[in-house]
Design a protein around this nucleic acid. Structure first.
Length: 593
RNA sequence: CGGGGCGUAGCUCAGUCUGGCUAGAGCGCUACGUUCGGGACGUAGAGGUCGCACGUUCAAAUCGUGUCGCCCCGACCA
């Protein structure tokens, strides 16, 4: 490809509104262009890069024995009603009506495809002989994000590889799950991404049934808990906290007289702290939940957050939600914001996080409007039915596996593997007959997603320097940029054309910067876009029959003889494309620096 | 949905507080010339309903009300 014949609108300045590296650099390098909040067009360079990620994903899926198909992006809403997901998705689901002959058909833009694929399977698969099977597609997904942000990291329209496996047994599902897990590791490794598989909240089957693949990055929206010693990694919804916390309050602590005090208009932790000049750590947060309709009081330390998944498990509840204001008023006798555990045990069950056991002279709501109670102590002033790990993990918490201290870092989620069980197959009657040919059985299902755009965004977010982006050969706009310093010099132009042609013939993805621009402009653009390899053709070296070859992440070029340059470059590229070792090493160096 | 910020040339922005002549700069773009190994220079040009609507005023980019859009923080996120 010749530069002058494609569209590469690079920018010198930081576009208004872009704040994080991947967003700024992808816009500046002319890879993407914003259409509206949460929707970006892929320009030629961006599209090429994305397609390379798509190819790697496809190759690995095929190698793992998955079968590609293509479902529709539009789907009748009735299908989502059968799985109750119109309500579950709520505002995230983008709905519209098809108007045909004056009759309206409600349809949705698919935010995912469990419904469609399961419906398909229910119609075409009916025998154990057809199972197991794993079907996948690479499709645009639509989700009405309340707040799209960070360029292409969070958009309303995005490309997803979604795979679904169907089984007759848990063993078969487990096998497939492991195969997919490994395929994901290979995929992200090939893409040059520094990924971290973490345990995620598991589905109805329980156990280690779900993993997310994360790219550690300061601008990631998710938080992962990581133990540097044993490698335990989990997202914050899932992360267990080691140990059972303190056995009781500090024995040295002097238990003070409890008292009720006025705290007018202070109904948040923040307001109470400001009013009493106390730290959130001194407060016990009392939250009223309803578990399958029954109210329950949950206590955590003021600076902690309740983990609803842990709470749900402890209570064994199907439906768990924060109680509405009327229920809270009925249970506590006070408006929202003044709940406390004193005297509440008679009314509802009280459960508490382990940390609460170690608190003394705490501040709690007084169950009266505009009143709190200070110097409250466990055992003397209130009782708790059950202590458990009920909060989100924090940096410094104890690792549940090895007992060491854990850290927390931000990360971008690029993939998710999940054991679904029979949630959708049951709802959509996807059944099969086994060897006995008797009662139909429900198919067991797994699902596996990769956010393909996020592979690109993840690379752009983690791989750049002051001059611009730095792509690995496996995922890049063009592998080689042939850059004649002066196109008006016939010898240079001719040599560049020749090399460009030879590289094309050798299967190298090459672009020729044939623009009549000053060298500075061409070099800056080349670095900004981040082509892995640049071949500079200048008059001086050319006079000796040489060209300069430089990796984007290296400082100095290497001189190669023009006659053999094409072959040598093609070999270099093939080698780096297969292993990505040079890129990985350079990335490690940058991260350490 | 709450809080904050911003809409002026293709891009980045000044001008708005304190209303007033033909609305500006840099980059980019067009033409010509000089340049040519890390974002050159000169000359001449093209390019704007100042987001939109209504209002106040002799007069609105500037003031008021409304509305639309974009960005950030928070809430939400199978």
């Amino acid at each position: 490809m010749k530069w002058s014949q494609t569209l590469i609108p690079t920018m010198k300045e930081i576009p208004d509104g872009a704040e994080i590296p991947s967003h700024i650099l992808m816009l500046r390098a002319g890879l993407i262009s914003q259409v509206m909040a949460g929707a970006y067009s892929y320009l030629p360079l961006g599209w090429k890069t994305l397609q390379k990620a798509v190819s790697i994903v496809r190759e690995e899926m095929n190698a793992a024995g998955c079968v590609e198909l293509h479902l529709t992006a539009l789907c009748p809403q009735s299908l989502y009603e059968r799985t109750n997901r119109v309500e579950a998705f709520g505002n995230v689901l983008i709905k519209t009506d098809l108007n045909r002959a004056g009759k309206k058909t409600p349809v949705v833009f698919c935010p995912t495809h469990e419904e469609e694929i399961t419906d398909l399977v229910s119609r075409y698969i009916s025998s154990y002989r057809q199972l197991p099977i794993t079907l996948y597609q690479i499709q645009t997904k639509f989700r009405n994000e309340e707040r799209p942000k960070f360029g292409i990291l969070r958009t309303s329209e995005f490309l997803m590889k979604d795979a679904y496996s169907f089984h007759t047994s848990i063993e078969s599902l487990n096998q497939r799950y492991e195969a997919m897990y490994n395929a994901y590791c290979r995929t992200f490794t090939r893409c040059g991404l520094p990924f971290l598989p973490v345990e995620a909240e598991s589905g109805p089957i329980g156990g280690d049934a779900s993993h997310e693949f994360m790219i550690p990055s300061a601008n990631g929206e998710d938080k992962v808990v990581h133990c540097p010693k044993c490698g335990y990694s989990a997202n914050t919804e899932k992360a267990e906290i080691g140990g059972t916390g303190p056995a009781g309050p500090d024995p040295e602590a002097v238990l003070k007289e409890t008292a009720e005090i006025d705290t007018p208009e202070a109904h948040t932790i923040e307001q109470v702290c400001a009013f009493l000049k106390a730290k959130p750590k001194k407060l016990i947060k009392t939250l009223i939940y309803t578990a399958d309709g029954t109210p329950v009081a949950v206590l955590v330390r003021g600076d902690h957050d309740v983990n609803e998944n842990k709470l749900r498990r402890l209570l064994g509840a199907d439906k768990l939600e924060l109680a509405d204001p009327e229920t809270i008023e009925k249970v506590t006798g006070a408006p929202v914001g003044f709940a406390g555990p004193v005297g509440m045990a008679q009314k509802v069950r009280i459960v508490a996080d382990y940390t609460v056991r170690g608190m003394s002279n705490a501040i709690v709501g007084a169950n009266k409007k505009d009143k709190h109670r200070v110097n409250v102590n466990l055992g003397r002033d209130f009782e708790v039915e059950t202590f458990a790990d009920l909060r989100n993990a924090e940096a410094g918490d104890i690792c549940p596996r090895c007992g060491d201290t854990m850290t927390i870092k931000n990360a971008i989620e690029v993939g998710h593997v999940f054991k679904l069980g029979t949630k959708y197959t049951k709802a959509l009657a996807a059944n099969y007959l086994d060897e006995t040919g008797e009662t139909p059985k429900t198919i067991i299902m797994g699902c596996y997603g990769i956010g393909v755009n996020r592979i690109i965004a993840g690379l752009a977010e983690t791989s750049w320097d002051d001059s611009g982006l730095i792509w690995p050969v496996a995922v890049c706009p063009y592998e080689v940029n042939v850059c004649p310093v002066k196109v008006t010099d016939p010898a240079s132009a001719e040599a560049a054309e020749k090399l460009h042609g030879e590289l094309l013939g050798l299967g190298v993805d090459v672009i020729l910067d044939d623009r009549d621009q000053r060298p500075g402009v061409k070099f800056k653009d080349s670095d900004l876009i981040g082509f892995p390899l640049r071949v500079t053709i200048g008059a001086k070296a050319l006079a000796e029959g040489k060209v300069e070859v430089k990796w984007r992440w290296e400082k100095d070029p290497v001189l190669l003889p023009l006659e053999t340059a094409a072959k040598e470059i093609a070999a270099l590229i093939a080698d780096e494309k297969a292993g990505g070792k040079r890129f990985a090493e350079a990335m490690k160096k940058r991260q350490n620096a």
